[in-house]
Design a protein around this nucleic acid. Structure first.
Lengths: 248, 248
DNA sequence: CTCAATTTGTTCGTATGTATG
DNA sequence: ACATACATACGAACAAATTGA
């Protein structure tokens, strides 16, 4: 049994989907640059130890995605003009974060099954008396990339309901008079899209996601903002300057 | 067609695998705690809009994994004794990073298909004259969680070959006399496990991963360390204090 | 121009897996 | 448990376009 077939027994994901994923990876990594000819069906067949038809099915997928162009007698070529998909830079400081999202225009959606209380870890501060729940989809070029589930302290929300219903809560928060942000932290985890997330972000179920849990605490130690934001995993990039905070 | 079936058309992953992943998620998230009775087949069937047999197939998978226990006439219960898997804290400062990995004991493996040159982005500094390629698997409790592909400047490697062959390169680097680390940065992306990674980390193909690209630059602007480390996505957690660098 | 080698395109038959009712 | 429909995967054979000798 081929190595891939053994792995298949573990994951139960169709072989041609697995092969397609491997090839897509090489293109996205730049191992095969736009215009390059990729390996022939025979080579791929030998490499992955699968039937020719299976490799073809895999390449079919990539062709449908517009990633490759095929030409009988010549070969299969990486399509030109693929733009960098890793465009969303996750920021690690408050000011950079606010700067990044201040021009975002979220599309608010009705909040079904709104959890009345946010999940709070011990370091997340004391809960506020009451929260308002906001739900929105972030998009770029009409392509959704993030889903935000936000608990906002009602007392804060009431200061500018209209703003909070049209902009990202964090950027409103940053500019709101009379609200003093004392601390803010974010936890990032890697997860997979559940049914609802997959549907709203238009990605396959179980595709990788980044789950950001962001908490803003005011000077009284109250968590005035608790946001759970799920991003498509394939569009984000996080740059960390390991010496940044030492130099400062 | 059910919502899930529509999503299926997008990902081409078998329905019962998708349902299984969704259920696994709920257990790992703690939505269903150990000992809890999970929804009945009828409820799940209605929720996911699939056939009863399909839900059964999904639960079969979880049972094989040891995550649930079934009892005829009573229901399906979450197995006891599942521990928190989110134990690996990715650090965002040099000192914290070194502190975290200094006790790691990597298992070095032969480097097949060693790329002679590391991939360097413009901000990654000038390449060194020559690199040594090191490959290792990081484990905890005999469970592999990370795969490191490291390019180390030969000139640096030669200063302590034995150390570099027994400890993580970064921690050796941090303590090496005569080597001045001027800058270090890390890029984090979310990806999926390819065949080789899946095999070495003992995870299913295409499961989510964190791909860290870490570069250390000496005082001459030379990239003396270029590491590509792939972590299991399900074991990492990244804490970011958004006010950390402002306070400092 | 023809021929052979290469490479993708197409089609068959068969076995097994997936999903429904 | 059964019948049905469709998807997945294999191997093999042949067709069509491209290239260079």
């Amino acid at each position: 049994m081929s190595q891939l077939a053994k792995t298949y027994q573990l994951s139960r994901i169709p072989l041609y989907v697995q092969v397609a994923t491997a090839l897509r990876r090489r293109i996205e990594e730049g191992q095969w640059a736009p215009g390059d000819k990729i390996s022939t069906l025979e080579e791929l067949q030998a490499e992955f130890e699968v039937a020719r038809v299976t490799v073809r099915q895999a390449v079919d997928l990539l062709q449908k995605e517009g990633l490759v162009r095929r030409q009988q007698g010549k070969g299969t070529f990486v399509a030109a003009g693929l733009r960098d998909r890793r465009w969303l830079k996750l920021e690690t400081t408050w000011s950079a974060l606010i700067n990044t999202i201040k021009d975002n225009v979220p599309k608010f959606i009705p909040a079904k099954n709104a959890p009345p209380e946010p999940r709070l870890a011990p370091e997340d501060g004391r809960p506020a008396a009451e929260y308002v729940f906001l739900r929105s989809v972030q998009s770029r070029d009409n392509e959704p990339y993030g889903l935000a589930n936000v608990h906002l302290a009602r007392e804060v929300y009431e200061r500018a309901p209209n703003l909070f219903r049209s902009q990202t809560a964090l950027s409103v928060l940053a500019e709101l008079k009379g609200v003093h942000v004392a601390a803010a932290h974010q936890t990032l985890m890697i997860g997979t899209a559940d049914t609802e997330t997959a549907d709203l972000l238009k990605i396959p179920l179980n595709s990788p996601t980044a789950e950001a849990h962001c908490v803003v605490i005011d000077r009284h130690g109250t968590a005035i903002y608790v946001g759970d934001i799920t991003y498509r995993g394939d569009c984000i990039r996080l740059n960390i300057d390991l010496f940044g905070s030492m130099k400062a």
